[in-house]
Design a protein around this nucleic acid. Structure first.
Lengths: 233, 233
DNA sequence: GCATATTTGTCCGTATGTATA
DNA sequence: CTATACATACGGACAAATATG
């Protein structure tokens, strides 16, 4: 049985430190969690991780506070921290938020004087995702999908909104990790994202909003189908 | 000269603890900061505060991480934590966000089957604020103003959005603290909030959106006028 | 239900590094 | 440039709560 310390020891050296050690440790855990090497629901033990990252327990605890505040892990008093389990209610909440926020980005893009540039860079992201799809690298496809929608919200021009949305997408990645077959989820969205770029390029607001909405509705039902039958309600 | 420890000693006893000590310490600082007893820009020294709250420095540092992540304090590596200084750019960013988010709440209220209840409870908040205004308690007026707009966003039904907005409002309170004369800022908004409740009650979407927009534009210019001449750009 | 072992929560002492007077 | 104050980080210790047998 592989311990968490073993798993982490692979991907991590002496902790690159330009920032504080706690932040560096948090970043190490962030990437490990996002990559799925720390499964949702698994416990993160202070002592093991502190040993693996070669930091003190106190520093490790500071890192835990950061991750808990970001929603990546859950802190249970006197029981420890666990990689967040996203259930049905969390997925519903995430998509309720996306349905509110992403249209703001779409409107901002079409209302911007630099609409052409924005749409072009969005097109680049989809192109990269399509290349990854033909190469069969569905993990990259998922990453590009997330990047695509992050860019949309970014266009709204609100730092608060962008920060919140980045956190939401990190949470969403936790849900993606529970997918047994990434291809069936991500493949249809590639076409939808391309379609959105097209209607954005044509300056068609109504059609763009429709595409976003159907994308989100589709994604939510697909995710719920997978998450719903999991252990957690 | 009064030290931070002195100031804090007034409002804080042995730390009511139902949650972790770090969270309790963070909550103590939150209330002190929001009440203005810890001025923006002032440094929060580990040792003094740990002594005042009777916690260890380690626990204090965990609390600092939480507050820094919420944006209430700023963490400067190897220099310490300081109560956040909101400047012109921060105020602009906050109102850019509010202009995007609050209309979502307004639309949600008018589109809700329980619109009547929602508007009624908003009216209660304004009524409470009006009572506080006649009593001359402008701090309460400011609190109710914040509560009013928090309730609007809450109606949008997104936990992520509500959480983000609560953080934004806490940040906004930091800006309010720099006001030499709270009455001149808060007094006009009392009427505007009442006007919004009226147009919401009438079910007039366009007018409601217009009221929100002019409220935000007015509030931003007033705040910028005060914050702009401060020490920070 | 009880006793035990494990893990977290918290505190203290201390050494090192960094920024500022 | 030196000195000082402070944050950063570590390791050990014990108490408290939880999990396990």
């Amino acid at each position: 049985m592989t311990t968490q310390a073993d798993v982490l020891a692979l991907g991590i050296q002496p902790l690159a430190r330009r920032e504080s050690t706690a932040e560096a440790a948090a970043q190490a855990l962030r990437s490990q969690i996002s990559a799925g090497r720390l499964a949702p629901g698994s416990q993160l033990r202070e002592e093991h991780l502190a040993a693996a990252l070669q930091v003190s327990r106190n520093t490790m605890r500071e890192a835990f506070r950061l991750l808990a505040h970001e929603g990546l892990v859950e802190h249970a008093l006197h029981r420890g921290v666990f990689v967040r389990m996203v259930g049905v209610s969390e997925v519903r909440a995430m998509y309720a938020t996306r349905r509110l926020v992403e249209p703001l980005g779409v409107r901002a893009i079409l209302g911007s004087p630099r609409a052409g540039d924005l749409v072009a860079s969005l097109g680049d992201v989809v192109t990269a995702a399509e290349a990854a799809a033909t190469a069969g690298d569905w993990h990259v496809v998922g990453t590009q999908d997330i990047e695509f929608h992050r860019a949309i919200v970014q266009a709204a021009g609100s730092t608060h909104l962008s920060a919140m949305f980045s956190g939401l997408l990190a949470e969403l990645r936790l849900a993606f990790l529970r997918l047994p077959d990434p291809e069936t989820l991500h493949e249809p969205f590639l076409r939808r994202n391309r379609g959105l770029v097209t209607s954005l390029g044509a300056g068609d607001l109504e059609k763009s909003l429709g595409e976003i909405d159907s994308y989100l509705a589709d994604a939510e039902t697909r995710l719920l189908a997978v998450v719903g039958d999991g252990s957690r309600p």
